[in-house]
Structures are given as structure tokens and as C-alpha cells.
Amino acid sequence: MLSRAVTPHLVKTYGNRWFMVTAETMDGQAAEQAMAEALLAEGGEVVGSVRTPFGTTDFTTALAQAKTAKPSAVILNLYGWDLVHALKAYTAAGLVKEQIGVGGMIGGEQIGRPLGYANNAGIWGLIWDPKINSESSRRFIQGVIEKYHHTPTSRCYHGYAAMTQILEAIQRAGTTDTQALIRALEGHEFDGLKEGRSYFRAQDHQHVQDVLVGKAYGKELGLGHYQLLATVFGDPVASTQTQNACAL
């Protein structure tokens, strides 16, 4: 869902010749596969790729290889501190001057904050953002601020949404039995703090929800580190049950 939502915006902004930098992890490989498939659907091509060990702090060599390939964009299939370090290296390597864009399947406030505005760049898929225009999202933000004295990130959203749904499922099922909870969650629609509907698809348990596309701010312009470019409803970008089968 994230890759299908963000790829058209990456292609429109930067072009469709990509170089991939991917973490040597299962989620890194899954992101690379999803982004490559979405790019192919847009008529693009992967002109090169490199994989980096999880926990890499120096991406100088990887980005030098990317620069040599002369792509229109470098796609970072990384997360956490790996992504923070890679984006700092992207800025240091001067790829902007080479008109090589940057982005990927997933970013967020948890990346933007330690990265800082000076190194913040690219177009990213976002799971949640503090600028979502829904009343429940605003209440969530206010609740976190009142208790923890900071604006939540999408990691906070993950925890809140997951714990809320499991506790409500226990209430509906009247038990903590695993199979009973699965049945209570299958097909269940709930307030996912977003504009569109959020629900667990019964046949494969896919959480169908809004996907956001954001452009990283290079300076402080408002709440959060990303300008929201689009809110993409979940149903049009969700894979079918057959497509969802793991092919790694």
C-alpha cells in the first residue's frame, strides 16, 4: 500500500530511473520488492542497487555507487537509524546538485526529528502525521501532549492503534483466547484516526487504511517535518489476497 501510494509522486517529481539502497533484512528486501514492482507499473527501471548490513552508519560508498549510475532518484529501503545516517550522507554527497532525488516507502516524524531540518529531504510514504485532518487524530495528539509533553510520532500512533484494537477485541470476545480474538478482529472497522475508513480485511487480516505521501521540509514551516502531498485511501492501493502471498 505504501509503495503504490508513494511511487507515482516520486516518478512525477524525480523521474523513473532509480537506484536502490536496501538493508540486508527481510523488511528491507520486502520494501525493495514492493518499490520495484510499483516502479515497473509506472514504466520505470531500476538502474542499480546495493545492499547494506543492518546498523550501517557510513553510506558514503553506497551513495558513490548510486551517483555513478546516474539515476533520477535514490530509493532508500531503510528505516530507523540506518535511514537517518543514509539521509545525512545523501546531503553530504551533494546529490541534490547532481539533480538526483531521494525518497522511499516509509519515513515519518521519528526519522525527521533526529535527522534535523538541514538533512531532511525527499518524498516518502507516511503511516501517520500530526497534520491529519480528523477530530480523533487531534484528540490523540492532545492526549499525548498532556501526558508526555511532546507531539506524537507515527510510532506512537502504531502503539496506540494496536493496543486500542486488541483491548476492544478482548471486550467484544469476552476472552483473551487467540482464535476468539482473531474472529473478533476479522472484518472489524474502526476509527483509525484518519480521514478514510480503517478495517481489518477478513480473508487475510490486511489492515486497510489511508496512506499518506509527504515531502520532507528543509526548514521549519509548521507542525511536523513533512508537507502532506496526498492522502491515498487504502482500498485502491491494497493488494488482492493472491498478491499478498509472500514471495520472498
Rank of each mutant, 00 (worst) to 15 (best):
residue 6 V to M: 04
residue 7 T to G: 05
residue 8 P to G: 08
residue 9 H to Q: 14
residue 11 V to W: 00
residue 11 V to L: 03
residue 13 T to Q: 15
residue 13 T to G: 01
residue 15 G to D: 03
residue 19 F to T: 00
residue 26 M to F: 13
residue 26 M to H: 12
residue 27 D to N: 15
residue 45 E to D: 13
residue 48 G to M: 02
residue 49 S to D: 10
residue 49 S to L: 10
residue 50 V to F: 14
residue 50 V to L: 15
residue 53 P to I: 10
residue 56 T to P: 05
residue 59 F to I: 00
residue 62 A to K: 05
residue 66 A to E: 04
residue 68 T to A: 15
residue 70 K to C: 03
residue 70 K to L: 07
residue 71 P to S: 04
residue 73 A to W: 06
residue 74 V to P: 07
residue 85 H to N: 14
residue 85 H to C: 07
residue 88 K to R: 15
residue 90 Y to W: 11
residue 93 A to C: 06
residue 93 A to Y: 07
residue 94 G to S: 01
residue 97 K to N: 11
residue 97 K to A: 12
residue 98 E to R: 02
residue 101 G to Q: 10
residue 101 G to I: 09
residue 106 I to D: 02
residue 109 E to M: 07
residue 113 R to S: 04
residue 117 Y to T: 01
residue 123 I to W: 13
residue 126 L to C: 01
residue 128 W to G: 07
residue 131 K to A: 11
residue 131 K to I: 05
residue 133 N to C: 03
residue 142 Q to M: 01
residue 149 H to E: 01
residue 150 H to L: 01
residue 156 C to Q: 12
residue 158 H to S: 14
residue 159 G to E: 13
residue 162 A to P: 07
residue 163 M to F: 12
residue 167 L to I: 15
residue 168 E to F: 08
residue 169 A to G: 03
residue 169 A to N: 02
residue 169 A to T: 08
residue 169 A to C: 08
residue 170 I to M: 14
residue 174 G to Q: 05
residue 174 G to W: 02
residue 180 A to Y: 06
residue 181 L to R: 09
residue 183 R to P: 01
residue 187 G to R: 09
residue 195 E to N: 08
residue 196 G to P: 06
residue 200 F to N: 07
residue 200 F to L: 12
residue 202 A to D: 04
residue 208 V to K: 05
residue 208 V to R: 10
residue 212 L to D: 08
residue 212 L to M: 13
residue 215 K to E: 15
residue 217 Y to R: 15
residue 222 G to R: 08
residue 225 H to Q: 04
residue 225 H to W: 08
residue 225 H to M: 11
residue 227 Q to T: 09
residue 227 Q to G: 05
residue 228 L to P: 09
residue 230 A to N: 04
residue 230 A to P: 00
residue 232 V to C: 07
residue 233 F to G: 03
residue 236 P to H: 11
residue 237 V to E: 07
residue 238 A to L: 00
residue 239 S to F: 06
residue 241 Q to T: 13
